[in-house]
C-alpha cells in the first residue's frame, strides 16, 4: 500500500437520494463502486492529486438490477450502474438480447474482477480500453446521469469529450445504462496479451453493420466511414480496410504500437460476418 490510507475518508449513504445530497453538498467526493480501478491506484499511490474523500456506492442496492422492456419491436435493457460483469454473464436477458455484452464481461480480468467490477465503473473510469464500451456503442445506449436536480439522459456517443474526460458533472452519478438493441448479428472480439487479466490492445464489437472499436482512439469510436460504405451497399473488404484508417487513431503505448493496433483492427474487421463469403 503506497497511499496514506489513514488520511482517506469514506462517506456511506444508505440511499441514492442521500448519496446525491452528499455529492451536492460536498466537493471533491469520488464515487467508489467495486473499487477494481480505484483501489489499484490507491495501492500504487497514483490516485489523482487531492483525491482522498470517497462516496461508497456499493451498498445502494437500488442501482443493482437488469430490466428489459420493448420499445417498438426492439428490446431495451436497462442496467443499474452497480451491475457487475458477473451479473451480465449470468443474466438470461443479456444472453438472449445482447450476448456480446456477456462475452465482453467474460473476458474482463478473471472471476475475482468480474465479481466486483461494475458497468458504471467501467464507464466512469473512462478508459479507452474499457471492454463494455464498444458493445454499448454498437447498440443505441443512453446514460442516465442523476443529481439532486433530477435526471438527464446523455447518448453514450456524446458522453466522452476526450481521453478520460466526460460531460459528467462532479455532483452527478451514472445511475443507469439504457441499451436499445438494434437488429442484426452480434460479434465481439478482444485482442490482448492473454485471455484473462489482460487489458485490450484492440477490441471490436459489431451489431449488424454498426461497428465500434476500443483502444484505438482517445475514446471508444464507431467506424463511421466503414459503416457509410456498407450502408451504401459496399462489400469489398479491401476498401473497408482502407476506410478504417480514417475512423481510428491508434497510438504507441506500453501495451502496443499504433501500427500493430491498426493491423489487428483491420484483421478483426475482416472477420466480421459481412465480409465472410
Amino acid at each position: 500500500m503506497k497511499s496514506p490510507v489513514r488520511q482517506f475518508e469514506l462517506l456511506r449513504p444508505r440511499t441514492l437520494r442521500e448519496a446525491l445530497t452528499m455529492l451536492h453538498n460536498e466537493s471533491g467526493l469520488v464515487p467508489l463502486a467495486g473499487g477494481t480501478d480505484l483501489l489499484v491506484l490507491m495501492n500504487a499511490g497514483t490516485l489523482p492529486r487531492g483525491t482522498h474523500r470517497f462516496l461508497d456506492l456499493w451498498g445502494l442496492d437500488e442501482l443493482r438490477s437488469i430490466r428489459r422492456t420493448l420499445i417498438g419491436r426492439r428490446p431495451q435493457l436497462v442496467f443499474g450502474a452497480l451491475t457487475t460483469f458477473t451479473d451480465c454473464i449470468s443474466s438470461r436477458t443479456v444472453l438472449r438480447d445482447l450476448p456480446i455484452l456477456a462475452q465482453a464481461a467474460r473476458e474482463v480480468g478473471g472471476p475475482q474482477i468480474q465479481n466486483r467490477g461494475t458497468l458504471g465503473g467501467n464507464i466512469g473510469n473512462a478508459s479507452p480500453a474499457a471492454d463494455s464500451l464498444p458493445v454499448l456503442r454498437a447498440a443505441d445506449t443512453e446514460l442516465v446521469l442523476s443529481s439532486v436536480a433530477g435526471e438527464r439522459r446523455i447518448p453514450l456517443a456524446d458522453y466522452f469529450t476526450g481521453y478520460r474526460t466526460s460531460v459528467r458533472r462532479s455532483d452527478e452519478l451514472i445511475t443507469a445504462i439504457e441499451v436499445l438493441v438494434p437488429p442484426g448479428k452480434q460479434s465481439f472480439r478482444k485482442v490482448g496479451t492473454r485471455a484473462a487479466q489482460a487489458i485490450s490492445k484492440v477490441v471490436l464489437a459489431a451489431i449488424g453493420k454498426r461497428i465500434a472499436l476500443g483502444s484505438v482512439a482517445p475514446t471508444v469510436v464507431r467506424a463511421t466511414s466503414v459503416e457509410r460504405y456498407l450502408a451504401a451497399g459496399g462489400s469489398e473488404f479491401e476498401t473497408a480496410r482502407e476506410l478504417l484508417t480514417d475512423d481510428i487513431h491508434p497510438i504507441d503505448d506500453i501495451r502496443s504500437t499504433a501500427a500493430y493496433r491498426l493491423r489487428v483492427a483491420q484483421n478483426l474487421l475482416g472477420q466480421l460476418p459481412t465480409f465472410q463469403r
Binding site: 483501489l39 489499484v40 461508497d56 451498498g59 458477473t86 472471476p111 465479481n115 466486483r116
Partner: peptide
Amino acid sequence: GKPVNSCLVPTAQ
C-alpha cells in the same frame, strides 16, 4: 460465496 481480490476490497464495504 464469490471469489474477490481482498487487496481491492475496502473492509468498510
